[in-house]
């Protein structure tokens, strides 16, 4: 897939409004453009998948979960480097996410330098 012309957009998918604005604020402070979605469905329906260079997603959300979103994107052959942030970081879930191609799996509250490091790494690929 030719990726060089992709805008370096970071998508944030989290059902919690405070978390969404915190993540967007964080990305803005390091000069990264971002767009936030309140649910996996909203993201899938937005048609932004192809422009997204990095996805930050919550795991547990009403409706489609973060892992289901990842599976759906994989099924659409839309491989976006994905960083999961979750309040319940159990090992099994972590393994499942990483096996399906997630680049990072962070427990809330997370170290934002670690998160930004992963985002940057994802964007440089």
């Amino acid at each position: 897939m030719a990726t060089q012309e992709k805008t370096k957009l970071v998508a944030v998918v989290d059902d919690d409004e405070l978390m969404r604005s915190a993540l967007q604020g964080m990305l803005k402070s390091v000069g990264l453009p971002s767009q936030a979605f309140a649910s996996a469905e909203e993201f899938l329906n937005s048609g932004q998948q192809r422009q997204t260079a990095c996805l930050i997603a919550d795991i547990r959300m009403p409706g489609m979960s973060g892992l289901e979103l990842q599976a759906q994107l994989n099924a659409e052959h839309c491989r976006i480097p994905t960083i999961f942030i979750t309040a319940h970081g159990d090992t099994k879930m972590r393994m499942q996410a990483l096996r399906a191609g997630a680049v990072e799996f962070l427990a809330k509250p997370f170290d934002d330098e670690a998160l930004l490091g992963s985002v940057r790494a994802a964007l440089e690929n």
Partner: peptide, 21 residues
Amino acid sequence: AHEVNQPIAAAVTDANTCLRW
């Protein structure tokens, strides 16, 4: 714990963002 963790995580991120600016 889950409910409280959520805003606390957001607060930590916002505090770091604030410091960064």
